[in-house]
Design a binder for these strands. Structure first.
Lengths: 204, 204, 204, 204
DNA sequence: AATGAATGAGACTTCATTCAT
DNA sequence: AATGAATGAAGTCTCATTCAT
């Protein structure tokens, strides 16, 4: 077994043509990953699916891991964008409004591409492939920040633990709902229940 | 890649020596899996680590997947045992006692072998390798069963959703705690908070 | 470009069958090397020529370099055997007899497989592939040892330089004769001339 | 593997800028060849090292072999120049003077770029890449020519064999000295010894 | 002329699996 | 039953070379 391969992009695309190639490769990575799973995915299959020669693929991505890392980063970036934006708006908002908003955004984040999310979740957490976990850390931090700046009185003494619990709950509910019970997305019951659960926990 | 290989054991170990061989192989699977991860794990390495020839390994396990499946089933069985046992005792117990007990058992279940748990969690969910998910389903069912038989009045109308939420929360907290914040295992604060969170949600 | 690959044999053949496989592979390496040269030689071609699967080849030889190293060592061993044997007999022999004998042995050494010798000479001197140079060092040492123990009076003051010169001359003549002027091997003229050249140089 | 590629320059550089490009490429070839060896050298790396695009490189050199051939020819030309010049001057010179001069020139020829010489020596002797061997043939011819025109009486009957021996000895000594014992270049001992060896052989 | 993106044959290598002993 | 030699599909990756811009 070789040492871990390099993961960083090999070459920046300079021309327009190559930028399209890179995009096609990343798209193909998503398709193959969803279709075959991480360990059945191969650089050859990705190249084939992208309609690109294996050589071109290696011009930009030095390894299978680099491929998935690029895809993951793109996905993570999309997810994160949803939060950062909302975080601005939420400063000083009433607790209930904020909690509900965070839940909605988290669900939306999982809805961007649920299949992709599921499979990225299964990828070995190694090197740059740990990016996915960072989204949660960031979410946790935003929740903590909100709780600390919150005007309403809160029941939990330890806000860090409260933020941990809260964001874990939101994450797991969103995850399960989108991936395993998408039927609950129509009616708002599950969201209402989760809001309820969290508010009862947080409020005095 | 050929069609999915067979996964069921090729022959039942009849003699005592065979049984020891099988055990040694499963143990070795665990070690190699933890050390190398699923896709770096190879049947040859497992055989080597088990001190057994590759031929013997294939006498008992017809594929790489079968190897991991056996290990997963053993692990799942150990986890499940903790619950089923407790489930007996808990019928008719006060809500708080029951919730606390379930949380403790879930944490203990994750503590059996956290490293193994983490890596099994990363294994492709394919064929028999979906067993891990079934533990959660079983937990969900037990919680639902308890809620339905509970003497105390409950606030949520929809007990299925309540069971879903409850068991998801317990699962995620246990998982995160054991794998990412083992320092919280000493003091009982996190457990107390979680009990609190759930009771506030369930009680009128 | 990867780091230099491992070169040492991967596995000792335990059974008779595998010993035959190893032999077949080394033989095939010689054939392919002579036919195609070092950089056109590939592990696949060697496996094919050996009538062995590429997998079997890699069971015993972890890289192309290992293949050539094994072959080179076998060849070097054969060459060296000729000298070591003779070295015994030559202690105390008259100068002329010794010089002639050494020349004869050196030529014979080059005649073992001239084509192979030529191509091994072209192989990049890297890692274990430096073995070929060691034969010359060993020859040099034997000549020096003989000169030091020689009963007859010698003209050169510095015996090290004399040994260097002598063995270089013998080597180059043998090499050139066998590879470029094999017709001179029939008549003994070239050998006589070389003996003459060396004796005139060494004797007072 | 395809048929041997073309090796002759694709176009003559017409302008001054082109000429500089060609030079830069040949220089880069030398650097990369010395650094990486023949089979690790790649045309892309040469282009990079020359600060030229791979497309431009192929405008002037139609293949990897052509690149090395050009370099080799340049080197060979430099070596040969030393001899041809001297050959003029030496006609009719005393034997000892001539022998010493030839040895000096040969050593100087090897000193032009010993590293380059070593690596060119390792290049597969194929097509135009055989040029290196021709230097020796030329040297041999010049020696023979001198011996034939020599005024002093010579001992060997067969002047061809004598020329062969003589030039082989000179070549091997120069080679070994420059590449393996450069410390002997300071003191003139080795040169003196070699002159001695050859004169004793040639003179009556 | 120059650029550098693209190509794809083919090199090296691993590993799940089979099978002769 | 056990062994381990053998297999070969398939994977990763490089690099000489071509060609659109």
């Amino acid at each position: 077994m070789a040492a871990r391969p390099r993961t960083t992009a090999r070459k920046k695309p300079a021309q327009k043509r190559s930028h399209e190639t890179v995009d096609a490769i990343v798209e193909a990575t998503a398709r193959v990953l969803k279709r075959d799973g991480y360990d059945r995915m191969s650089t050859n299959r990705v190249a084939l699916a992208a309609g690109v020669s294996i050589g071109s693929l290696y011009q930009y991505f030095p390894s299978k891991e680099a491929l998935v890392a690029a895809l993951m980063e793109r996905h993570v970036e999309q997810m994160r964008a949803l939060f950062e934006e909302e975080a601005q708006r939420l400063a000083g908002a009433p607790l209930e409004v904020a909690v509900r908003a965070i839940i909605m955004r988290t669900i939306e984040a999982h809805e961007i591409d649920p299949e992709l999310h599921r499979v990225l979740d299964q990828v070995p957490r190694v090197g740059r492939l740990q990016k996915l976990d960072e989204v949660q850390d960031r979410g946790r931090a935003l929740v903590l920040q909100f709780l600390r700046g919150c005007c309403e009185p809160l029941r939990p003494r330890n806000l860090e633990i409260a933020a941990d619990l809260t964001s874990s709950v939101i994450e797991v509910v969103s995850h399960e709902t989108v991936l395993r019970h998408p039927e609950h997305l129509r009616d708002g019951v599950l969201v209402d229940e989760t809001v309820d659960l969290i508010l009862r926990y947080l409020k005095t």
